[in-house]
Amino acid sequence: MSDLSDHKPDSQRPMLKVSNLTHRVSLETDTLTILQGVSLEINRGESVAIVGRSGSGKTTLLGLLAGLDTPSDGTVELDGAVISQLSEDERAKLRSRRVGFVFQSFQLLPALTALENVMLPLELGGFDSPKAKARELLERVGLGERLYHTPRQLSGGEQQRVAIARAFASEPAILFADEPTGNLDNRTGADVSDLLMALNREQGTTLVMVTHDERLAARCGRHFNIEAGILTEPSAAAQPEAVN
């Protein structure tokens, strides 16, 4: 296996290529199919929303796309690497260099300050001067005054901004967002999504977001619907104009 962190991205190749992805889980009595025959291609710099109701399989799909889990069938090719052929540790290595995450429940480490939470992926990825970079990003998301606060001392919106700063810190090639505004009120949610879109544009990151919020989905370049594990892409005419 080649060293993935040195893998040269090929600008011609799609950032994410999924073919015939199926995922099943075994229950005590029978097997449940969560995803069935999902195929899609996402190009570099694109922003994509996957919209579906609770239980439609969208979170499972996100996990598989990001390499947090491996599918029962089918392949996921992330930046040229076939995820299902990688070991857990190789996938971890791939994530540390190429992938960023924003979660619905923020997932900040409660014992670390805002600054330290942002520094963490930089240190783990072996980046230079993590502290300066983390400070710069926190200033960018408007939390320059709250560097030394712990998550408990921050509001939900502020915590999500720290999480966004952390996600962009390692300049990932692709960012996965799971209901990033799901735990926030409308107004704060709108602020957070503005920030997410803006940073995404500035860094030219590929964005894959799952949400049930149609308005948030409308801000992405393309969107897919998912229902009962089957992914559909509305016709090009039905695609929203990317809202800037």
């Binding site: 857990e88 540790d89 971890a92 540390s96 260099r97 480490l109």
Partner: peptide
């Protein structure tokens, strides 16, 4: 467990 899951997401291997 949550911390470990997050660290793994951020790229830390099982051995790590």
């Amino acid at each position: 467990r949550d911390t470990v899951a997050l660290l793994k997401t951020l790229g830390v291997s099982s051995q790590g």
